[in-house]
Amino acid sequence: MKNIFSKTDSEEFIDRINQLGVDSQPLWGKMSVDQMLAHCNVMYEMVYENIHPKPNAFLRFILKSFVKSKVVNETSYSRNIRTAPQFIITGDRDFQIEKERLIRYITKTQELGTNEFEGKESLSFGRLTSKEWSNMFAKHLDHHFSQFNV
Rank of each mutant, 00 (worst) to 15 (best):
L63E: 06
Y44D: 01
L59A: 14
K70H: 04
K68R: 14
M43T: 07
Y77V: 09
V72F: 04
F95N: 07
K108L: 15
K108F: 02
I88V: 07
G126V: 02
N73L: 04
K99S: 07
L63D: 07
S124G: 13
K120G: 12
F61M: 06
K68C: 04
E98V: 05
S124P: 04
K30C: 02
N73M: 09
E118W: 01
C40L: 05
V72R: 13
R82Q: 08
G91A: 14
K131Q: 14
S24C: 10
K120W: 00
C40D: 03
R104Y: 11
V33I: 10
I51Y: 05
V67N: 08
Q96M: 08
A38F: 09
I88W: 02
Q35I: 00
I62P: 12
S32C: 03
N115T: 15
W28E: 00
L37T: 00
K54M: 06
N56M: 12
H39E: 01
G119Y: 00
N56H: 11
P26E: 04
E118D: 10
I62L: 13
W133Y: 13
I103L: 02
I88L: 15
R127E: 04
S78I: 02
E132F: 08
T83P: 01
S24E: 04
V72A: 11
Y77S: 05
I103N: 04
H52F: 14
R101I: 00
T75I: 11
K70R: 12
E132I: 11
R60Y: 02
N80M: 07
F125G: 08
S130A: 15
E118I: 02
L128S: 09
T75G: 01
F95T: 05
R127H: 03
K99H: 09
M31P: 00
F61D: 10
V67L: 09
W133N: 12
